[in-house]
């Protein structure tokens, strides 16, 4: 769980792509998933998602993310088929339209969430924000906020599991609780977590300031983010996806 959002070092073509291209690809996949309702095409998109993870050399992580999403998807699927009332009944209260809608909803959910998680696994957050600043001219302040927020996700989760462990050791029955109950038990214990988080953001701001935060300009980044033939290929692939989405 801790390292779900963590960067995995590597040198695959996905790693080497321009971060902007990766964001673009993610957005295109999302758009494609909503433009087309063709189940076969959606399944194809899902395969594209998985393929990206495999090409990036992180099959295990890809599958972990996929399995995690699958759990939510199954829950949503069941909910949908029970709720949608239109169409012809197929079995009990389940209708053909219900099945179709449910399939579309969950496929879209998985298709959209996968690349979002994958981008963080194959791109350093710093590259992401630096390229946003350099190429897309996003103000550095916003980019910095984004990167520190992402930087603190693993730390926050680490702290959270640390608190749960400490409380379990003193007898709070976290190890027996499940789902919602567990969640409701964690909440009152979060006071220390919030206090320390607030204290930490101020310190982090200070740490950035003493290392020249305010001197930073658009051109400060050491790395440059030129577009290469790789990105051209990816862009062509994106157009293809969009065209297919509209046609199918």
């Amino acid at each position: 769980m801790h390292n779900l959002f963590q960067y995995v070092p590597g040198n695959s073509i996905i790693h080497r792509m321009n971060p902007i291209t990766k964001i673009f690809l993610t957005i295109v996949i999302c758009i494609a998933a909503f433009v087309s309702g063709n189940l076969l095409f959606l399944a194809g998109l899902l395969a594209v998602d998985l393929l990206i993870g495999f090409i990036a050399g992180i099959p295990e992580k890809t599958l972990t993310i996929f399995k995690g999403l699958l759990k939510i998807a199954i829950f949503l699927f069941v909910l949908q088929i029970l709720l949608v009332r239109g169409g012809t009944p197929v079995f009990w209260i389940i209708t053909d339209e219900g099945l179709l809608t449910a399939a579309r909803v969950v496929l879209r959910l998985v298709i959209v969430c996968m690349p979002l998680a994958l981008v963080l696994a194959v791109t350093r957050v710093t590259d992401l924000t630096n390229s946003l600043v350099q190429v897309l001219h996003v103000p550095y302040k916003y980019a910095f906020t984004l990167s520190t927020a992402i930087r603190f996700i693993p730390q926050f989760l680490e702290e959270m599991s640390g608190i749960m462990e400490a409380q379990t050791a003193r007898g709070v029955a976290f190890d027996k609780a499940k789902g919602l109950k567990k969640f409701s038990m964690i909440l009152p214990l979060c006071a220390p977590l919030l206090i320390s988080s607030v204290r930490k953001t101020d310190l982090t701001a200070a740490a950035a300031e003493v290392r020249g935060f305010r001197l930073r300009t658009r051109q400060s980044g050491y790395k440059r983010y030129p577009f290469t033939i790789l990105d051209l290929g990816a862009a062509a692939f994106c157009l293809l996806l969009l065209a297919a989405a509209i046609l199918l």
Binding site: S147, R151, T204, S220
Partner: peptide
């Protein structure tokens, strides 16, 4: 103190600024 998610970037930060 550490503001970057990857070690190398943490060293880069001050140098760049």
């Amino acid at each position: 103190q550490i503001i970057s998610p990857v070690v190398e970037d943490e060293l880069l930060y001050g140098l760049e600024n």
